[in-house]
Computed example of a mutant assay.
Amino acid sequence: MKFSRRRIEEPEINLIPFIDVLLVVLIFLMLSTTYSRFTELQINLPAADAEKLRDRPSEVIVAVAGDGRYSINRKAVDGRSVEALTAELSAAAGGRPETVVIISADALAAHQAVINVLDAARRAGLSRLTFAAQGGNGR
């Protein structure tokens, strides 16, 4: 009796079709990718120049007390409503939309009191706003 042994071929992975598919996927990704540039923050920093100090636009200083009372240019505002603030801001600005509104709020003032000042400035047509802050060392 003669037993014949067949030689078992080991399976082999053919890498050529795999490489072809990867190259096609790579080309597709390269062609379909959109490259976007991240937007940068554009800010204009103020400069301390004595000559430009004379050309500064008018300012309206709005103080917000810790208990929610308002004063505009050191004059107390009657009432705490947005409508009263709007009327006082319009009168203090004198119809000049380039007027800068400086909000000086107490550290204990409610956020809503400051939001009311922002809303009143928007209603009065004053879009240039800034906040006053005390320096880090108490000065």
Rank of each mutant, 00 (worst) to 15 (best):
L118S: 10
D106V: 00
A120W: 04
A65Y: 04
L108T: 12
H111I: 00
V100A: 11
N137F: 09
D78V: 00
I103D: 07
L29C: 13
S90V: 00
I43G: 02
E12N: 13
F28Q: 04
V60E: 04
R37V: 12
A65C: 00
F18I: 14
V24H: 01
G66P: 00
S32F: 11
A87T: 10
R123F: 14
V64D: 06
V82W: 06
K2N: 07
G138I: 06
R7S: 08
I8Q: 14
A92Q: 06
E40W: 10
N137I: 06
A47M: 11
S4Q: 10
T86D: 08
R128Y: 12
V60R: 03
D55I: 01
I115F: 09
V25G: 10
R128M: 06
P97F: 01
V24T: 12
V24S: 13
G66H: 02
S58L: 03
V100H: 11
T130K: 13
A87Y: 04
T130R: 15
R74A: 11
M30D: 10
R54I: 00
N14F: 06
S36W: 09
A91R: 10
E12R: 15
G136L: 11
S127C: 02
I16W: 09
A63G: 08
A65H: 05
G138S: 09
L118T: 06
R56F: 04
Q134K: 10
F38W: 11
L41M: 15
N116Q: 14
F18P: 02
R96C: 01
A120M: 09
K75N: 07
E88T: 07
L31N: 09
E40P: 00
I27Y: 01
G79C: 05
R74D: 13
T99P: 03
L53F: 13
V114S: 14
F18L: 15
I115M: 12
S32M: 07
I8V: 14
L41I: 14
S4A: 12
R37G: 08
P11N: 09
M30N: 12
G135F: 03
A93P: 03
S81F: 04
N137Q: 11
I13V: 15
K52T: 08
E51W: 02
R54V: 01
A93C: 03
N116H: 15
T130W: 04
I115C: 06
R123C: 07
R123N: 15
A107I: 00
L29K: 04
E10H: 08
L118Y: 05
Y35V: 13
A121M: 06
A76P: 05
T86P: 00
D106A: 14
E9N: 09
K52Q: 15
L31W: 07
R96H: 05
G135L: 05
T99F: 07
K2T: 07
A47C: 08
T34N: 12
T33C: 06
R5W: 02
A50F: 07
A76E: 13
F28Y: 10
D119E: 14
S90Y: 02
Q112V: 00
P46K: 06
V117P: 09
E51P: 00
S58W: 03
S58R: 08
R37N: 10
S90I: 01
Y35L: 14
D119P: 03
N44M: 06
